[in-house]
Design a protein around this nucleic acid. Structure first.
Length: 760
DNA sequence: CTCTCAATGGTTTTT
DNA sequence: CCATTGAGAG
């Protein structure tokens, strides 16, 4: 075949990529390491499906973030043009939302259902706790909420909880969860997890509906499959039951959504689940220079649970990875900002080619400020913030109440915003009335506030407002309706009086966003467009472009997944921040944190900087209370365990060698840092050959390594069985002195050997 | 009963 | 910096 005859979408692929793009039928597992061309394979694959004549509407591509969905959509359209628009490319949540907007009725919801975000959820939970007489200090609504979410993410029901779990009978969760679900049902609302969970239930309880959808989607593709949770997994099984064409792409080393129930075992189990599967491993990295990969691989190899693989690269070593340490977080930010500026000036590097990546959102402020002081253009990616602004949520709540009059969370949110004389007392009486009448709050308000008291009049005023807007909703486009509401509710006036520029700006931005609603295709009338726009606001976040022009990007590791930048700064690489303090309890969550570090490092293409400070940043209270100063406490910050003893050949700068506060433990910890991923430890092996590299257990490991310090037998790949004479971890290269039978003892560098340790 | 202001408590990641 | 709660005035 001559060059011209190969279609464009198949050009420039390596053999594995080509295979992954063209294997269309059946179950396909693509294990795609970081930077191995994953997105490329997915988009080309869609193009190839269309090329072979598959109807675009019969292709479903699921991603985990909106950013990824948006990007994939764009790239598919670049490849194939117009037909690309008809392919379903969306997140799990949006996909389920779309399915339910059509077919939810058998479950007892209307197709006008509302989608509750965590704020609405918390509002409902708080009310329930109040009704039940719990003290919010003893039973924090947020914790109940996160537990409910946690269970839903794992596909567990309240009934399961009662039956199987060791929850104390007095646990508030048992009472609250049921009431919470009832409240949502009554409000014709679903929370994020319900979108997925109810779709699954719909498919289970109404197989005919499941059949229609699985018949429709002839080809299903899933990106970031390692982040699938069990509910999503079951849903996929049903969606592919008719055609069985399921292609999943993922990398267990990049599983970073454990808190959402993501279970990397699902990807590890794919082979067992699909006996007829085909597997393709893409381990060739095209993104990063060799030194960056050396460091990233070193870090992730220390995880005990993972598929064995190592990314290869043909790239040059490139600059070494730089580790920088400053005294305070403030100075760290200054340093990074200086470097950004210098790279821009001296190396003529566009600001858009640099990114600052951190573990938690709160970190951004420090770095934003440092960049702003130097007038370096920058942008914080992760625009969730916009829809979280109070004024934006308020106006959206008004709109939701119009689409779904049963939406009690929306009602509660805006009934007295701006204040119109409807206080807590009135509201709680209304809630009681509504409960006895079995009605939503809005309907109940209409039915009960009939008198001439001040209260009743105020309530009637609010109801009238909503009714008027509701009647307009079928004629006015979302923007116009929003404008009407801003005036009619007095919200505009309230904001004017406050004279807060930023609040006015967010309302402007919201109007701008509403304008976009008119472009939503395939809709019937303004109300339908309003509905679809509200879905977008709930599920998608603002139209966020990834800054590529001239702005330095700042974002969390989670937001950075899937992106790449020539220069990356991974900042605040200290214990309690990265890994985060809240993730330190279990080995599994530490391993997830380590994967996060891996994801962060592998974003870098040419230069990677890893920075930290010797002291901790101030906490909330201290930060806002006192003056600006140095913005640090006296508390020492320890270097992250993830950057300990990084391979010296690939790094330069301050590579920490010490792990713990306790000097007595330091030697052991430090040694363990080296040995993780480099030595395999097994307790009491039946024979030397039977040593299974995956059999490493926390406690045993600790015990073993303690013993390792003297006289332990070790299997060295080159020299056979030896005995440890001495251990030297003081220098930059830790060494073990081994004696092999009659031979003279020799020093072996731990970092360069794959040792198996025999514990007797 | 409602409104305003001051005090309080909260520090992970996202759909 | 946020959202929520409590005290006291209107």
């Amino acid at each position: 075949m001559s060059e011209e005859e190969v279609p464009g979408h198949l050009q420039g692929l390596n053999p594995e990529q080509h295979d992954a793009v063209t294997t269309l039928e059946g179950a396909l597992l693509v294990l795609a390491g970081a930077g191995s061309g994953k997105t490329r394979v997915l988009t080309r694959r869609i193009a190839h499906l269309l090329h072979t004549g598959v109807d675009p509407e019969r292709i479903l591509a699921v991603t985990f973030t909106n950013k990824a969905a948006q990007e994939m959509k764009e790239r598919v359209q670049e490849l194939v043009g117009e037909p690309g628009k008809k392919v379903w490319v969306s997140t799990f949540h949006s996909t389920c939302g779309r399915i339910l907007r059509k077919d939810i009725e058998p479950l007892g919801w209307s197709t006008r259902f509302s989608i509750y975000d965590d704020d609405d959820q918390a509002r409902i939970i708080r009310q329930i706790l109040k009704d039940l007489g719990y003290d919010p200090k003893e039973v924090p609504p947020k914790s109940i909420l996160s537990r409910i979410d946690g269970h839903k993410n794992r596909g567990e029901t309240l009934a399961d909880l009662r039956r199987l779990h060791r929850v104390s009978p007095g646990d508030a969760l048992l009472r609250v969860w049921g009431l919470y679900d009832e409240a949502l049902r009554a409000a014709d609302a679903l929370d994020f997890n319900d979108l997925i969970g109810h779709t699954l239930r719909l498919f289970r309880e109404h197989p005919e509906v499941a059949e229609q959808w699985s018949e429709r989607f002839a080809y299903v593709l899933v990106d970031e499959y390692q982040d699938t949770n069990s509910v999503q997994y079951q849903l996929l099984r049903i969606l592919t039951q008719t055609h069985g064409n399921l292609a999943v792409v993922g990398d267990d080393d990049q599983s970073i959504y454990g808190f959402r129930g993501a279970d990397p075992d699902i990807i590890r189990r794919f082979k067992a689940d699909h006996p007829q599967h085909k597997m393709i491993a893409m381990e060739q990295n095209y993104r990063s220079s060799a030194n960056i990969l050396t460091v990233a691989n070193f870090v992730v190899e220390q995880n005990s649970v993972r598929e064995r693989k190592t990314l290869r690269t043909a790239a040059a070593p490139g600059p070494v990875v730089r580790l920088l340490v400053e005294e305070t977080p403030f100075e760290e930010a200054e340093k990074v900002a200086d470097l950004v500026e210098r790279l821009h000036r001296r190396k003529d590097l566009a600001y858009g080619k640099m990114a600052i990546i951190y573990r938690t959102n709160a970190t951004s402020r420090l770095f934003e400020a440092a960049l702003a002081r130097r007038q370096v253009p920058h942008r914080v990616v992760g625009g969730r913030k916009f829809y979280e602004r109070r004024e934006v949520r308020d106006m959206l709540a008004y709109l939701r109440l119009i689409v779904n009059p049963a939406d009690d969370a929306a009602f509660l949110r805006v009934v007295n915003v701006p204040s119109r004389g409807i206080g807590t007392k009135t509201v709680s009486e209304l809630r009681e009335a509504a409960a006895t009448r079995g009605e939503p709050l809005l309907a109940s308000a209409k039915g009960t506030a009939l008198g001439e008291t001040v209260r009743d009049k105020a309530m009637r005023g609010f109801v009238g407002l909503i009714e008027e807007a509701t009647s307009l909703a079928s004629e006015l486009e979302p923007v116009a309706l929003l404008a009407h509401l801003l005036e009619a509710t007095g919200y505009r006036e309230m904001v004017e009086e406050e004279n807060e520029a930023s609040r006015k700006e967010s309302l402007e931005a919201l109007a701008q966003d509403a304008q976009g609603a008119e472009r939503i295709g395939d809709t019937h009338g303004p109300l339908d467009r309003l509905q679809r726009w509200l879905d977008q606001t709930a599920l998608a976040g603002q139209d966020e472009e990834i800054p590529d022009g001239g702005q330095v990007a700042l974002m969390t590791v989670h937001n950075a997944k899937g992106l790449e930048y020539p220069v990356v700064f991974v900042v605040q690489m200290v214990e309690d921040q990265f890994p985060h303090a809240k993730s330190k309890e279990s080995k599994a969550s530490i391993e997830e944190e380590r994967r996060l570090a891996y994801v962060a490092f592998t974003r870098a293409m040419e230069r990677l900087y890893i920075t930290r400070a010797r002291r901790k940043a101030l906490g909330f209270g201290e930060r806002f209370g006192k003056g600006k100063g140095k913005r640090a406490t006296e508390e020492p910050a320890l270097a992250s365990r993830f950057i300990h003893v990084l391979p010296p050949e690939a790094c330069k700068g301050d590579v920490p060698q010490v792990v713990t506060e306790d000097p007595a433990k330091t030697r052991l910890e430090s040694l363990r840092g080296f040995l993780r991923g480099r030595a395999e430890v097994e307790a009491q092996p039946s024979s030397l050959e039977s040593l299974d590299p995956l059999e490493v257990h926390t406690l045993r490991e600790l015990e073993s390594l303690e013993q390792l310090q003297e006289g332990v037998r070790v299997v060295h790949p080159a020299h056979g069985v030896g005995t440890i004479q001495r251990v030297d971890i003081e220098g930059t290269l830790p060494r073990i002195c081994l004696s092999f039978g009659g031979e003279r003892a020799r020093w072996v560098p731990v970092a360069q050997s794959r040792l198996k340790v025999v514990v007797e």
